[in-house]
Computed example of a mutant assay.
Amino acid sequence: MKITLLTGGLYSVPSMHYLSGQKMLHSVVSLGKPDKNNIPVEVNAQHLNVPFKRFLRDELLTGFKNWLIESQPEVVLVFGCAYKLPAELLNIPKFGFYNIHFSLLPAYRGKSPVFWQIKNGENAGGITIHQMTEDYDNGPMLVQQEIPIEPNDTFGLYSGRLAMASTQLIAKGIEKLINTGNELLYPQNESKASYFPGPAIDDLKINWETQSAREIENLVNATNPDYGGAVTLFRGQPFRILEVNQVQVNNPTEAIAGSIVHADINYGIIVACKNMQYLRINIIQSSEGIFSGFKLAALGIAAGERFESAASLFGLTITP
């Protein structure tokens, strides 16, 4: 089968290598200007001696369309597309465009399903390969696979596992297309549909007063590394927390949520959450650098100080 891979991110790289090894990868395409996410895609394509093409948004119905007509891929596999593709492009390949989406559709439609699944404390997610239509994440499904979310999975760890698992699901999907074409696609169950937009900066904020220790840990994991950490204030400055874990405290006493109840170079920084739950702060990032909790204690952060919920995040941006 003659396949084009349309991608703008590193999570497509295992599938790129797999398809190249199977002699099915005709070309790799990225849409948009070069950036930190798609430049490694181009480097990998060059390493594999696979033709690489780049098209800007205003070239979708000109250069990209003409290139599709000339090259005639049988199918275009899509790993994350920054733009909504015009309907007239979708029917040019023999089998159309198929999106590799990191959730069990129709649940978690939208731009960043892994972030929301981890933040919401889901025990499992998965991968869906579905035919693309004019509407985002709505087309009929080719194949689907559930993948457990482990308690300590971060955005990066879980996405990496999904990226590796995608290779075998793509193989299964290709076999199905070869044998039956588009005849055995099955519709999404709209009664189970949910949609989540791309995270905004307010979605990254820790609210010490309302969130449990588990909810804060889920948020921290969901932001690591792609969103740069969950946001809190300390001494009036924004801190991004990249790793925490829940701990038990001997002889606990009531403390305001966000308060540091213990700090030393042996046990690090321990913070009170609501309902007398506690988190150890393992890794943070501030304007001064990236530090372990042990280092913070050595630098003088002490029990009695407090992390605060960020009421205003003016000027703070999301990193991807």
Rank of each mutant, 00 (worst) to 15 (best):
138 N>W: 14
120 N>M: 08
133 T>S: 13
100 I>E: 00
105 L>R: 04
152 N>D: 15
125 G>V: 00
57 R>T: 13
69 I>V: 14
87 A>C: 10
60 L>C: 04
85 L>N: 06
114 V>A: 02
55 F>W: 06
139 G>F: 03
63 G>D: 01
75 V>F: 03
156 G>W: 06
83 Y>I: 11
64 F>H: 05
99 N>L: 05
72 Q>R: 12
74 E>T: 08
85 L>W: 07
63 G>W: 02
85 L>G: 06
134 E>H: 13
124 A>S: 12
88 E>Q: 10
143 V>W: 01
120 N>T: 11
112 S>E: 10
151 P>R: 12
93 P>N: 05
102 F>Q: 01
74 E>I: 07
106 P>G: 05
124 A>Q: 11
104 L>H: 00
75 V>R: 04
151 P>Y: 11
68 L>V: 06
98 Y>M: 06
109 R>T: 04
87 A>Q: 11
147 I>R: 09
58 D>W: 10
138 N>G: 15
134 E>W: 10
70 E>N: 12
68 L>R: 05
150 E>H: 15
109 R>L: 04
103 S>H: 02
102 F>P: 00
145 Q>A: 10
119 K>S: 07
75 V>P: 00
72 Q>D: 10
144 Q>E: 07
142 L>K: 02
69 I>P: 09
125 G>I: 00
97 F>S: 03
136 Y>P: 10
104 L>M: 08
70 E>Q: 12
118 I>H: 06
145 Q>L: 08
122 E>R: 12
85 L>P: 02
79 F>K: 12
132 M>V: 11
124 A>E: 11
93 P>I: 04
127 I>T: 00
57 R>S: 13
150 E>S: 15
146 E>W: 12
153 D>W: 08
69 I>R: 14
71 S>D: 13
88 E>H: 09
56 L>S: 09
